[in-house]
Amino acid sequence: MGGAAPPRDDETRGFDFYDAADVGVVRGPGTVIEHDTGGVLALNALRDVDGARKNRKRVGRGVGSGKGKTSGRGHKGQKARSGGGPRLGFEGGQTPLRLTLPKRGAHNPHAMTFDVVNLNALRAHVEAGRFGEYDYENPRVLTMKDFVDAGLSNRKIKHGVKILAGALGDDAEGADDAFIKVRLEVSRASAKAKEIIERAGGSVTRVHYNRLGLRALLQPEKFPRGLPKPARAPPKIRPFIDREGTLPAPAPLEADS
């Protein structure tokens, strides 16, 4: 933990984020307008911010331009010609660095990357109304689609969403009792996060979607001919999940209602 973050002044995040007059290109209050000039925003008075656009560099157009004779390329040689010079990493014929060093490392084609969501962020989004009307007593099941729609997860999530306890997990015992009740269908959840959610009366179901299934979950409108059948989880993944994800999601609740 570093020093305290600068105080977040909510007013600076709103409409008065910039002082309009400072931009210098605002017809501010009090500006005198001549009617026959075409009004408040006359087409002939429009202009961009100073420095918004940079002039093109014109080379080879005479001594006065400063980029005249050699066009900024110096005198003669490979780099003065069109086509630029030796390829990237070429060291003049000496064995380049990338060939002198041995290969190392490996690529795991089965690795799964999850979009991480911390419980604090989840609570903040729920309380900010990002999930719409939220029933704290009997909440609806939130799927990864809800997460994306609420802006809580990136819409480009690759394999799914993992719930982590985050700062809530660092708290002393009992300090996290006040977590809201949530029902989640996500790809993974840390043990700590699961414990915190269940202590608050909620539930986490770890569901499996393959890439196609996840796409169908997040963008059902892209499947005009119907949603695909949910894929079964590969044996190696089964220990990490509770069940396969359904399409459409969430799965209907068994016990309730």
Partner: peptide
């Protein structure tokens, strides 16, 4: 006839 007016104070406050 030249008509002049000024932009009202408070313009641009999102009211």
């Amino acid at each position: 006839m030249r008509v002049r007016w000024t932009i009202a104070e408070g313009q641009g406050r999102g009211e």
